[in-house]
Amino acid sequence: MNGGLRMTGGVAHAPSRATRMVILGVIGLVFAVPIVAMVEFTLRKGLEGGYDAARWIALFQNGFTGVYKTVFVGLSNSVTLAVGTVALVLLLLVPTMLLVHIRFPQFRRVLELVCILPISIPAIVLVVGLAPVYAVIARMFGSGVWTLAFAYGITVLPFAYRAIQSNLDGVDVKTLSEAARTLGAGWGTVLLRVLVPNLRRGILAGAFIAVAVVLGEFTIASLLNRINLQTALVVVSKTDPYTAVILSLLALSFAFLLLLLIGRLGASPRRSRSPRSSKGTL
């Protein structure tokens, strides 16, 4: 054991159980401390001190009416944008990456540069460049909130690309596609039934990151005058900061459940393990 790593023949392998527990504990604190602070803030009584759940009870009793209704509009818009962004990015990115990997490997660096480039551009600069484009989109397709999916697709492109590429590097897609084609499969069958199942982890990771980025995005929606979850929370915080934090906690819980649901849907189905009766032979 050396520095928390198991050594085999002088090569460091996976960290020990104690090291993993320490790392997970530190990461858990990073997430838990802000959430606990938010809960404590919403339970404060005020100058008289003490804690109660009056604000939570009042919010649910009033039925989220008035200005709080904006949060549900923003939440529904963000969920719609998350679905649209994931579909747009994956439907365009995955086939393109596979095509470059199989047929045009010389363009891999060019594709990587194009996909990684948006991460180096600040969101406000991106909005300035997209504003004239969105003026044309508004004239052609209207100014609905769903049009933000195009901008969000550019924003999440670097993260989705790296997630899928890391999985793609570990799969011999060229051999798999050639074997499937030799057996008479068409390109649609090769893509959907051979390659995509082998890239499930990378595609799922890209979807995770895309949903997280869309649900937490504020700058683009604010500057383009669209209502999403984050802009709606800012509107509520101007009138009632306590309720805005409560709604943020509820939105955070919803996002966690949504990501958990995506993980369940994308997980490989469990194989039924029925005991097989075997007869001994002499």
Rank of each mutant, 00 (worst) to 15 (best):
L126A: 09
L113E: 03
L117S: 10
T147N: 11
I121W: 10
A138D: 15
L117T: 12
T147Q: 12
V125H: 00
V133H: 05
S120D: 02
L113S: 08
L117M: 11
Y152V: 03
A123V: 11
V114L: 13
P118M: 02
P132I: 01
C115R: 02
G142M: 09
V128K: 09
F141L: 12
W146Q: 15
I121T: 04
A131E: 14
V125L: 06
I137A: 08
A123W: 07
I116K: 00
V128P: 12
A135Q: 14
V114R: 03
V133R: 02
A151F: 07
G129L: 01
P118C: 03
G153M: 05
V125R: 01
V127W: 00
I137Q: 06
A149N: 11
G144W: 04
V136H: 10
Y134H: 08
V145I: 10
F141G: 03
A123T: 12
A135G: 15
L148N: 08
V114W: 05
R139N: 11
R139D: 10
G129E: 05
L117H: 03
G153T: 01
V127N: 00
G153E: 08
V114Y: 04
A123Q: 15
S120N: 09
S143D: 13
G144M: 04
L111M: 02
L117C: 10
A131P: 12
E112D: 05
A135S: 15
A138N: 13
P122W: 02
P122L: 07
G129M: 01
P118Y: 07
A151G: 08
I116F: 03
A135C: 10
R139G: 09
